[in-house]
Design a protein around this nucleic acid. Structure first.
Length: 564
RNA sequence: CGGGGCGUAGCGCAGCUUGGUAGCGCGCCUGCUUUGGGAGCAGGAUGCCGGAGGUUCAAGUCCUCUCGCCCCGACCA
């Protein structure tokens, strides 16, 4: 392609209202434009990147026997009503009525529709297994679109669905996907982890997420470098370092005006780990006192799995329920249900005295209070790995893919049954698997950029090579560039030639910003000696080579990275 | 949905406190010069100051409402 004819609106200045690096660079380098909150236009360069990612997705999906189909984006409400999600899902679903008043919605995912199809067409175990996939637009009325294309209201997703006769079959389909996803993200040049994830409302027991480390991410994962334990902090478990045992006797201390752990620990000169934080929660079945160590945070999701939906109590509710001001609550002599983090089972602690302006030192679990013991803390950096004890690390990540074992959650309500060898009717056992191509692109930029711009991995770059004829007014330069352009194109190498009548500086800046992996720089002086320069965007190294060897050199570089 | 911020030329911003001719940089157009890291000089074009209502002789500026966008949190099937 010729730069002069292609629509590549680069910006010299960073657009305001952007935070994520990928967002800034995609706008600046002319890959995307924003239409409205969470709605993005992919410009020619951006669309080329998505298409290269999609090509990889298709290859790897076909390789595990998945078949591409295409489903409508507009869905009748009835199918979603049958699985219960019409009501379970709130404002996040775009809903509308057709001209006859029939309830419809825009698809945020396609479990229902895929299962509907299976229910009508699959009769026998002989029809199974099947894997169907599509690369299709999804719509979700996100409460807060953010970070450019990372969280949008309309986005393309590769979603596949597996249909098997039993759990064993599902295990196999699930593993095929996990392996395919590993290959996909590796081919896309990403650093990523596969982590255990919360199946949430998708149902089913097992789920994993594929996570690309980046500060722009919205999730956090706990990782153990020794044993390989990897989990979303939404469910990650960890052990915490024990505190030193102290020979404190049970004793009230006057702590006037000191309420928070930070205030009392400073007042007493003790680290946060010697404190018990007592939090009053209001659950559906009544008040619950949750105890965690002073240096920890309460994990809301873990807690919710134990006591059901809850909220924290208001100040006056604390006074009414426990008869003391918030800030002086302690675990002793409480009449209500108490849950406590397992790490509090041992040691000796300081906590509120259940009396205004007083705390108690020397509280011992089992003696001064009892509780239901659960893991209810948020795993954090340098906690111990639950499996091997090694210190874990917590990293911020972008979710780029997920895989779920659905089981029969959708096949049962939608009556997707098959007849087995014995003529008996069984529900189809399903899995669902998603990848966001735009998130791959964004994650690739987040992980590969420098002060000058994007540094694309070769596999998903919009072009393989960019040719920079520095002075288009020089006939020799223009001719040499044109010849190279034709020669490279003839070898099926994707080339962008910057044939604009611009100054060298402008071309260099734009080339670095756009981030195509290799630049062939054609300058007058070098050309007189039969030389051109080849610059590797990633390393910024340039090398002078003979112009007639340029084609081979490019081929060599592209091949080399394909193999490695 | 709660909290905060911002809407002025294509982009980035100043002007608002204290009401009185709408500005700067970049970009864009023309010409000349320049040509290896976002050129120089000269000339030129470009604004429903997000929208509606109000106060006032007079509103970009003050008041009320509203819409949009960004950030933090909640949510995220």
């Amino acid at each position: 392609m010729r730069f002069s004819e292609m629509f590549i609106p680069t910006l010299r200045e960073t657009p305001a209202d952007t935070e994520a690096i990928s967002h800034k660079l995609m706008l600046r380098a002319g890959y995307v434009r924003q239409l409205a909150a969470g709605l993005y236009i992919f410009l020619p360069l951006g669309w080329r990147v998505l298409n290269r990612i999609n090509a990889i997705l298709k290859e790897e999906m076909e390789a595990i026997g998945a078949q591409e189909i295409s489903m409508p984006v507009l869905h009748p409400a009835e199918i979603w009503q049958e699985t219960g999600r019409w009501d379970a899902i709130g404002d996040e679903m775009f809903r509308l009525k057709d001209r006859t008043g029939r309830d419809m919605c825009l698809g945020m995912t396609h479990e229902e529709i895929m299962t509907w199809l299976a229910s009508r067409e699959i009769r026998s175990y002989r029809n199974l297994p099947q894997i169907w996939y599509q690369i299709q637009t999804k719509l979700r009325d996100e409460a807060r679109p953010k970070s450019g294309v990372l969280r949008t209201r309309e986005f393309i997703m590769k979603d596949s669905y597996s249909f098997d006769v039993d759990d064993k079959g599902l295990d196999r389909s699930y593993q095929l996907h996990a392996d395919a996803y590993q290959r996909i993200f590796k081919r896309c040049g990403l650093r990523f982890f596969q982590v255990e994830s919360d199946p949430g409302m998708m149902g089913g027991a097992t789920a994993h997420e594929f996570m690309a480390p980046s500060p722009a991410g919205e999730d956090e994962v706990a990782l153990c470098d020794r044993c390989g334990y990897a989990a979303n902090v939404e469910l990650a478990r960890s052990t915490v370092q024990r505190t030193e045992d102290r020979d404190w006797v049970f004793d009230e201390i006057h702590t006037p005006g000191k309420r928070t752990v930070a205030e009392v620990s400073e007042f007493l000169g003790l680290s946060h780990a010697y404190f018990i934080k007592s939090l009053l929660l209001i659950s559906i079945s009544g008040p619950v006192l949750a105890l965690i160590r002073g240096d920890q945070e309460l994990h809301e999701k873990k807690t919710e799995r134990i006591i059901g939906h809850f909220r924290t109590a208001h100040r006056d509710e604390v006074r009414e329920t426990l008869g003391v001001e918030a800030g002086y609550i302690g675990p002793m002599n409480q009449k209500i249900r108490i849950i406590a983090d397992t790490c509090l089972k041992y040691g000796v602690y300081v906590s509120g005295a259940n009396k205004e302006d007083y705390h108690v030192k020397g509280i011992r679990p089992g003696i001064h209070f009892n509780a239901e013991w659960h893991d209810i803390h948020v795993a954090k950096d340098s906690d111990g790995c639950l499996i091997c004890g090694n210190p874990i690390r917590v990293e911020r990540v972008i979710e780029i893919g997920n895989i779920f074992k659905l089981g029969t959650k959708y096949s049962m309500p939608l009556r997707a049954f098959y007849l087995d060898e014995n003529g008996e009717e069984n529900p189809i056992v399903m899995g669902s698997y998603g990848i966001g191509p735009a998130r791959i692109a964004a994650a690739a930029i987040e992980q590969n950029n420098d002060k000058d711009g994007i540094i694309w991995p070769e596999s998903i770059a919009p072009f393989d090579v960019m040719i920079l004829p520095l002075n288009m007014k020089d006939e020799q330069t223009a001719m040499a560039a044109e010849d190279l352009y034709k020669a490279l194109s003839a070898c099926h190498i994707d080339v962008l030639i910057d044939d604009r009548d611009e100054r060298a500086g402008v071309k260099f800046k734009d080339a670095d910003l756009i981030g195509i992996p290799y630049q062939l720089i054609i300058g007058e002086k070098n050309l007189k000696q039969g030389l051109v320069e080849i610059k590797t965007r990633k390393t910024t190294e340039t090398e002078k080579i003979r112009i007639d060897g340029a084609l081979d050199k490019i081929n060599e570089k592209l091949c080399y990275t394909l193999k490695s």
